[in-house]
């Protein structure tokens, strides 16, 4: 199973220019890919196309499978966003367990999976704490645990350490790369240090994939 973006152009309504222009990309399973580029270059839009959140104006984005019916992009991707999105009044465990339930697991089974994923990212002891009392780094690790709990084959991370200090960023990246083994990971970043930890790098400039 691969994610394939084929000559995709994205132009938002009423926008006077394209966001992506004839962008092509393939995301392989069990590989990490960094997408580099300046602000406004189209990195996040490319990620949204990969996740099925944005429909291309032209070109195709799809899941390629060796045989059988290809699933929808949304069904095979999990997100880690720059802005931490959690349910603040719910516990870390609840926030992760909800992703496990998208797999059809029952309530208790989902909580067990969530506990394991939180342990994977080093947050076992804070599982019962409400998300609103966790630090930024801890929240980002909760989000990573949530993405892992969904067991999607691809993980899309949009500047996952963009709002964290260096030390916290390292901890979050460690959690991301060590726990996502087996999944295809796409990390949008403008941080070369983050990109350096990936198997491959593509650069985007003015909506075009200029290096691969």
């Amino acid at each position: 199973m691969r994610l394939v973006v084929d000559e995709v152009t994205v132009r938002y309504p009423r926008a006077d220019r394209h966001i992506l222009a004839d962008a092509s990309l393939t995301v392989e399973p069990d590989r990490t890919l960094a997408v580099l580029g300046p602000s406004g270059s189209g990195k996040s839009t490319l990620l949204s196309v990969l996740g099925g959140l944005v429909t291309p104006t032209r070109g195709t984005a799809r899941v390629a499978v060796a045989e059988g019916l290809a699933p929808a992009l949304r069904d095979v991707t999990a997100w880690v966003l720059q802005t931490v999105n959690v349910l603040p009044e719910r516990s870390a465990l609840d926030n992760v367990a909800v992703a496990a339930r998208t797999r059809g697991l029952g309530r208790e089974e989902s909580r067990a999976v969530a506990a394991d994923r939180l342990a994977d990212v080093g947050l076992a002891r804070r599982a019962g704490d409400a998300a609103r009392v966790l630090s930024g780094g801890e929240l980002q690790r909760v989000v990573i645990a949530r993405a892992l709990a969904s067991a999607r084959p691809f993980l899309l991370a949009d500047e996952p350490t963009g709002q964290l200090d260096r030390a916290t960023s390292e901890a979050v990246l460690d959690a991301l790369f060590t726990t996502s083994v087996g999944a295809g990971v796409v990390v949008v970043t403008h941080d070369l240090a983050v990109a350096a930890r990936c198997d491959s790098i593509v650069r985007i400039d003015d909506g075009r994939v200029v290096t691969a």
């Binding site: 966003l81 999105n85 959690v86 349910l87 909800v98 969904s150 999607r152």
Partner: peptide
């Protein structure tokens, strides 16, 4: 609502 959708609900 968007958060749940992004998780896969």
């Amino acid at each position: 609502a968007a958060l749940y959708a992004s998780i896969g609900v």
